[in-house]
Write a protein that binds this DNA or RNA. Sequence first.
RNA 1: GCUCGGAUGGUGGAACUGGUAGACACGCAGGACUUAAAAUCCUGUGCCCUCAACAGGCGUGCGGGUUCGAUUCCCGCUCCGAGUACCA
Length: 1100
Amino acid sequence: MHFKNRLNLLIFANYLRKRNLMDYQFAAIEQKWQKFWAENQTFKAETNSNKPKYYVLDMFPYPSGAGLHVGHPLGYIASDIFSRYKRLKGFNVLHPMGYDSFGLPAEQYAIQTGQHPAITTEANIATYRRQLDQIGFSFDWSREVRTSESSYYKWTQWIFMQLFNSWYNLETDKAEDITTLIEKFNAAGSANVKAVCDEDVKNFMPSDWAAFTDEEKQVELLKYRLTYLKESTVNWCPALGTVLANDEVKDGFSERGGYPVEQKKMMQWSMRISAYAERLLQGLNTIDWPEPVKEMQRNWIGKSVGASVIFPISLTPTLSAGEGADNYGYETADPLLWEILKTNARVNRVNQTEAEDTLWQKIRNNQTGHKIRRQHPIGSYIADFICLNKRLIIEVDGGYHLEIQENDKIRTEALNQLGFDVIRFSNYEVLSDINLVSEKIKTELEGRPDIATKKVSNLSSLSFGEGRGEAGIEVFTTRVDTIFGVSFIVLAPEHELVQALTTEAQKEDIEKYIAQTKKKSELDRMADTKTVSGAFTGSYVINPVNNELVPIWIADYVLAGYGTGAVMGVPSGDQRDWLFAKHFNLPIIQILDAQKDIEVEADPTKEGRYINSDFINNLGYKEAISYLNHWLEREGVGKAKVNYRMRDAIFGRQRYWGEPIPVYFKDGLPYLIKEEELPLLLPEIDKYLPTESGEPPLGRATDWSYEKQYEYELSTMPGWAGSSWYWYRYMDAQNENKFASKDAIAYWKDVDLYIGGSEHATGHLLYSRFWNKFLKDLGYVNEEEPFKKLINQGMIQGRSNFVYRVVDEEGKGTNTLVSYGLRKDYKTSALHVDVNIVENEILNVNKFKEFRPEFANAEFILENGKYICGVEVEKMSKSKFNVVNPDDLIKSYGADTLRMYEMFLGPLEQSKPWNTNGIEGVFKFLRKFWRLFHNEEWVFHVDDSIPTKAELKALHKIIKKVQDDVERFSFNTSVSSFMIAVNELTDLKCKNRQVLEDLVVVLSPYAPHICEELWSLLGNTDLSNTPYPTFNPAYLQEAEFAYPISINGKMRMNLNLSLSLEQDQATEIVLANDQVQGYLEGKTPKKIIFVKGKIVNIVV
RNA sequence: GCUCGGAUGGUGGAACUGGUAGACACGCAGGACUUAAAAUCCUGUGCCCUCAACAGGCGUGCGGGUUCGAUUCCCGCUCCGAGUACCA
């Protein structure tokens, strides 16, 4: 139906007028039935039903001002077909719709225009509703909900209160009421509490707890509550004037609006979703969701199994700032010197003398009561053995060290200068009476002051290795097996220990580096992953497995927010560490015999056996991990640990248009309002902007305080609050006493089919699962997972059309436009042209002149008398003139055509550009279907004859096909099959009532309006609840089959054979066939494959 | 980089468990009807060779493999799309 010019349009209008009386009148039919469904509440789900339930849900739409474009209904049409089909199949179907009506766009609009967001929201909803209605969806509108209505957000606030009143008990592995925590505190203090909580919780006895003031108790409890107030680093978006959750930030910009986002410390409400990390991860294995969405959630949760290891900070000689540095008198922190010492230490250890080894076995592992290290670099020397805390060096002379014996005196003096004493033993002493030597060492150690504690007190913020009494740096690693390959430690520049660890000599370097890092924006830092940068702090840690000194660096490739903000650098196994080591000339130590080419790049293999790895040498990966985890735990320097990437979710927004948080503040502490005081209504304000003092808009509300004296929380809930539980409200939307009754929840249970876009993968779908699990823990709901089956509909992209304007020598546009195929002959620039005036790439020139008046007198260079436009697939957007509005299509073709066409376009889950090129085929199909029920004069006519075999076959083919297709969500293929069925029945001139009636039922989920009309013309009622026809395979059975005969796998001909024939009889007939013999060219078949009802293959 | 999808005529796509590749629709070409156009109906339409028919050859991103038989299974690559990222 294209109008090449105005004349055609007139003729078409005339044709429509003539058709009015008889042809398929989609507009009238569709209006009639939409009205009928609304008036009769046809799709109201029953609350008490003996039928099995089926819950079909579409993702909660935000009613934007732009209304629906052609991509939005795709999922709604699919879910509607499914719902209607399930009703025919005898299910009590819940298929609701509502609006996620709090949100930023309405508020941005309010800021610009001063209009109350409630008013714009209301108007947008009206548009939305009108558009939804005209597509003929079978929603149960009696259950409509809007998150911005107080009758709804009352319950969002109520759930917030439950979260505030709960803590996560790791022993029972679920959320519990906060009173059970208080009981534990009363009974046994904090000792036996295993909870997911803040890091800074106090350790206290029951008596302490009893002695706490109420305020102190509240402060402590807040660290356990599932929603809590905490100073945290947030994503602050200055342009929007609010904080954003991690999932609302994309590449350093806000998802809505694309404004820059920065990091800022603020007091914020948070949700302790991290408590549910493991359950959220495990639950994914139980639900039927698309793999990419599950994968995204897994990545978001980011579970890593590994170990935490504490690297004690070496107190010599680098941590001497304050008192040490001057005493030592020279710069031992020189990295170059370190490099040499390190290598020597390694060589020495490998080449140990018998005496050294004997002594080492006697004094290692705290056998003397003190930690002793071997081959430890001190100053410019390597000590054989050293006890750092006691500043004592033990040397064994002779053997390997013979050549330096003459230097002993100088050496001793130098070490003394560094604050160390040296005791010496000869090889002979050690080998003849090791016990005596060991006793001497012990006595010497006992008599010396322990300087470690004194040192450590300078570093009060350091973490401590359990049972060690030494300061340390905790790292998280998934490859603890590579710990012998550690050649440096890297801290994030923001790490809290950086200041403390930086030596005087390195101070300038470090400060310069931190300044440089701060200048880089978050985005630069992420984009620039190639440049290696970092700075040396001047300090060292001690690798607990081999007591080697390891230098501490800072670098921005380590993130403060993940793990402990510190990593152990293993250049041979990790490419980033490798690059770092290469750049700063740090050693690369091979630790597995299977590692290859580690001079060229890191080899992260887990294959092979360990080398250079002391006590795990010769082990394999699994044994090494398990051995080390035990070893670390026994030594008190680490343990196996699971780490999650997922952070707690920030829950407050400094905005107006959201749910008020039902909290007031007394003496700076948050308290809930009383349950019977819900809902806490959103107050009216004069302007939708922050106050002059920078408080959120709610600060403008006058007379808005709790009990006239306490200030309410001024931030509101984020956009995802209302959508995190809405599917339960649909179960019992009008309930005034509960968010939904127990009975309704028990009956409807969960969502059987959930359709929506994959953009909600890490936001809504994760938060909803979290709230659902929480509500289940508290016994309010019954299912662990809310959405059993999820389908992501593909995006409908825009398909832009272009005209080509000829440009002159200077590149200036002329008044000439050239058709697509001829544009190569000219210099042109492409201009977007409204897709609505282009049909099958042919430009409607007259409409174009109207659309772009500056081209009213333009010249058009045509090809074959037509102006052909260029095409490109882009995002659907106003600025690209490629938005297709469903209203226009419904006007031209009707809702049934639109519904079927959107399905016909291709598989639901696949993204595709919108393109109306095929819509006429679908429209023609519906007319052809309509005509089946009418005679030549368009008068309704069916007969009551007995259906023929061919008619029944066509019918039952489609009965089966549609049920198979719908069950596997393959809607596009059933549209094709409908066309085939109607084509077949048309060819058969079928007018048979029985056949046509069944056909109407089968088609009705796809094209409900036309089917309702025909159903009533056939004299029936209540199509929506008519049983789906029963498939009878007998009608499809054939006596014969045209077997494809292939020779050597190549199809040559078809041969009709009875289906009752078995292999022997069949091959006999096939081989007797002249044509077959012709193909065989006299050769004898080697083998004959016969698959009954499928194929005959002759191998020669 | 990693993870997950995908690649079939001029176009959208079909082929469900390894068994006739290209259903259905669009587009295009030809024809009927018409003064004409639109609409409608009919016929043809993967590519190559051939006047045409018959027959044949090629053909599901590329290269191999398994199999009587591969769009489908396996191995290796190329390209496109989506998500994600110094996550230790």
